[in-house]
């Protein structure tokens, strides 16, 4: 098992390398240069050259990449053009919030989606099934920012409720923190809930068609045991795949949701950096998020092989 995880981690290296090259190249395509962005167009040649040297911009492009990558690998993501502070520290201090938001959303979406998906499968082609289908399609269709806006509108107009302002972390005040996070997490979780619901329904149906289900019934099992001990466990494998894929949607969604709910997370950091043209920050934060996404998918894969004995660790 350990060797398997290690090998999978090694296999990630080329992917992560590709990701970093992609991000690096795309940032190089920015029209206009960073130097003018910082100094303005009227800077002296001397000042420009000085700054170019400071950022290593006078070097050939592959050396620039190596310099950046070398830094990244030793924990130095460079400094923000705006604040001059090291980027990595900022990323790490904000990552906690984003991770919490993502996990909470995922959790909320499962506790909505999996039971509804099971019910839809068991009552397939009834009005209940139809209702679940519409709910899941709505979940996928309603953009998180529209849902958030409408929800805030309704809450303020009908209940005079405003989400608490001033972020507090989970460690400072868990209750207040959860109060702040529950609404954004719910909004973020809906899209994932839609997809997971559908997958749950179709994979439960798929499993119930299999021969071994008949064997279990022939042993005298109750429907409860058939569904929860066997069908659900088998269905979990495809459901996990979709969950892994949906984590990307969640991570992307944090950019929008953190903005709407004024949560100082990684997503908000990216957006602010983009608006301020603080490219080293964008570069570092996007690399970080993509890496997290890849790692989460690896985690899902490992969970997968843990659940399914047919997958060997070879």
């Amino acid at each position: 098992m350990f060797a398997y995880i290690l090998r999978r981690l090694l296999m990630l290296i080329p992917v992560l390398f590709g990701i970093s090259v992609f991000i690096f190249l795309i940032m190089k395509m920015i029209p206009g240069d960073v130097v003018s962005t910082i100094l303005g167009t009227e800077a002296t040649d001397e000042a420009r050259r000085q700054l170019e040297k400071q950022f290593g911009l006078n070097l050939p492009i592959y050396q620039q990449y190596l310099q950046w990558m070398g830094g990244v690998l030793t924990g130095d993501f460079g400094v923000s053009l705006r604040t001059g502070k090291p980027i990595l520290g900022d990323i790490i201090s904000r990552f906690g919030l984003t991770l919490e938001l993502t996990m909470l959303s995922a959790f909320i979406s499962w506790i909505i989606a999996i039971p509804l998906g099971i019910v839809a499968a068991l009552k397939r082609n009834t009005s209940t099934d139809f209702g679940v289908r519409i709910i899941s399609l709505l979940g996928v269709s309603v953009p998180n920012f529209a849902l958030a806006t409408l929800l805030l509108l309704v809450l303020s107009l009908a209940f005079s409720y405003y989400p608490p302002a001033g972020y507090v972390s989970l460690f400072e005040d868990p209750m207040k923190n959860l109060q702040m996070m529950i609404l954004p997490a719910f909004v973020l979780g809906t899209a994932m809930a839609g997809a997971v619901m559908r997958m749950t329904r179709s994979s439960i149906l798929e499993v119930l068609r299999q021969d071994f289900i008949r064997t279990i019934r022939a042993k005298g099992a109750s429907e409860r045991i058939v569904i929860f001990n066997h069908a659900l466990k088998n269905a979990m494998i495809p459901i996990l795949t979709i969950i892994g894929m949906q984590i990307g949607t969640l991570l992307g969604g944090t950019v929008i949701i953190e903005q709407i709910f004024s949560l100082p997370g990684l997503g908000q950091m990216v957006l602010t950096a983009i608006n301020q043209r603080d490219y080293p920050v964008v570069q570092g934060a996007v690399l970080f998020i993509a890496t997290v996404f890849v790692l989460i998918n690896l985690l899902v894969d490992i969970l997968y092989s843990y659940l399914d004995p047919r997958i060997t660790y070879k």
Binding site: I30, G252, I274, V282, V286, I289
Partner: peptide
């Protein structure tokens, strides 16, 4: 490997 929105956002940010 990039979340959809993030990729679109980055590309738009770069291209303008």
């Amino acid at each position: 490997a990039f979340p959809d929105i993030l990729l679109a956002l980055t590309i738009v940010a770069v291209l303008g």
